[in-house]
């Protein structure tokens, strides 16, 4: 697996460069936004002396490269500054809100893959027949409305008119769970409280479905297109000519080569969910990082904005690395390209 390790190091290196770029961008944006951060932080009643003092504390009187240096050193020390909105360290805010968002996005991503890929396989297998048309209509429907519209529709249908699911929140108020990891599904399990776990999952389902729907449509359409293309390849005709079962050809011979291009897009979709989560979290009153992000942007809370963007960028990069590794694992051409052909 030396080729694999080399690929991992290579991707980590590239990600590091991207992170440096992102940090510069965040830093630049924070300086470009009009308004003096020190004045905003101290409020309208502060006098010039107090402002000058805070400016010195925040290194705002130094040159830009020096300011960037301080910023990087702070970040590396794990210090993202204090949020003006919550009056707490930004890292503490993120630690509180990020798990809720990740929980939501992970489940949505899982639903996207677990539903979207089989739909795509089904459509390609029955291409041109009614199953195919049905999947294409479903895919078009899910893609054509943004996640927050689905959030409202689902909430109305399945939480309001048909009260199958809770309307908002992460867990029923009656449970008092110790927050060890911040992931409620994990914390309830750690506490051994099964009913609380059920409640947490119950609360997760509607927002996760709302978030995953457009991804399901994309994944299904893409998988269908890739598989239809693969079905025209000589090795599929060969498999048919050797009498292999059609279901086996679909699941193994045609699906595996088609999965690779789909995975790349699914990875991007997954990352895009972090952004879409902003509105879904708002609809479902989900106390996640995305909702926090919106709140701090509306309040020009610079430290919190920079921290949130940085964390989302890191999550994005991690997802991309995982997708790259999965593709390398699936595709022997990539797995062997670093070793050279025999």
């Amino acid at each position: 697996m030396s080729g694999f390790l080399r690929l991992l190091l290579n991707r980590l290196g590239i990600s590091l460069i991207v992170l440096v770029g992102v940090s510069m961008l965040i830093f630049a944006i924070a300086r470009i936004i009009p308004g003096d951060p020190a004045r905003i932080a101290l409020g309208p009643n502060a006098n010039a002396e107090q402002i000058a003092k805070l400016r010195a504390e925040m290194h705002l009187d130094a040159s830009l490269p020096v300011q960037y240096g301080h910023f990087v050193v702070d970040v590396l020390r794990g210090d993202l500054g204090t949020s003006l909105y919550t009056n707490r360290p930004v890292t503490q805010d993120i630690a509180q809100f990020l798990p809720a968002t990740l929980e939501l996005v992970f489940l949505a991503g899982f639903i996207m893959v677990a539903v979207g890929l089989p739909l795509g396989i089904l459509a390609a297998h029955y291409r041109g027949r009614w199953q195919d048309h049905l999947v294409r209509v479903i895919a078009l429907l899910t893609v054509s409305a943004p996640a927050f519209v689905w959030a409202v529709i689902l909430m109305l249908l399945f939480a309001f008119y048909l009260p199958l699911f809770p309307i908002a929140g992460r867990i029923s108020d009656i449970y008092d769970i110790e927050r060890t990891t911040g992931f409620l599904t994990i914390d309830t399990l750690l506490a051994g409280n099964w009913t609380a776990f059920g409640s947490a999952v119950h609360h997760l389902i509607l927002p996760a479905i709302a978030l995953s729907l457009s991804g399901i449509g994309q994944a299904a359409r893409l998988t269908r297109a890739n598989m239809v293309e693969t079905y025209d390849k000589p090795y599929i005709e060969m498999a048919q000519a050797y009498g292999f079962f059609p279901s086996r050809i679909a699941r193994s011979y045609a699906f595996k080569p088609s999965l690779i291009p789909s995975l790349t897009i699914i990875g991007l979709d997954f990352a895009a969910m972090l952004g879409n989560a902003f509105l879904v979290e708002a609809v479902f009153a989900w106390p996640g990082l995305s909702r926090y992000g919106v709140a701090v942007i509306l309040r020009k809370d610079l430290n919190a904005i920079m921290g949130t963007v940085l964390i989302i960028a890191i999550t994005f990069l991690i997802v991309n690395i995982i997708v790259d590794l999965m593709i390398a694992f699936l595709n022997p051409r990539i797995r062997y390209s670093t070793r050279g052909t025999s």
Partner: peptide, 9 residues
């Protein structure tokens, strides 16, 4: 074409 008749995966 033997090479494309065999599955690359």
């Amino acid at each position: 074409d033997p090479t494309s008749s065999l599955n690359p995966m």
